[in-house]
Amino acid sequence: MLSLKLQNLIKMLNQIAANICLAGDEQQAAVEVAHHIVAFWAKSMKVDVIEYYQSDGEQLLPVSKQALDILIANT
């Protein structure tokens, strides 16, 4: 059972991914989602969601996962 905090983070990330869908260009959307996370999320939130992605990640949308790949690559 995921913690409430983590459930919310997953929901938030997927919501961002759903709203930054640029006319089917997933790669560009992932870049924008990653940018959004960098710009607005606290460090602990990023750490928690990356940890979830690396250990499980099942509930994440494809664009969310790609965005986290970009984040991981840049840290």
Partner: peptide, 18 residues
Amino acid sequence: AEPGLRIPNMFDAAIDGS
């Protein structure tokens, strides 16, 4: 240099114990 927690994130973190 990192953004901090927003109000709802503070609440979640409080329940989580951090």
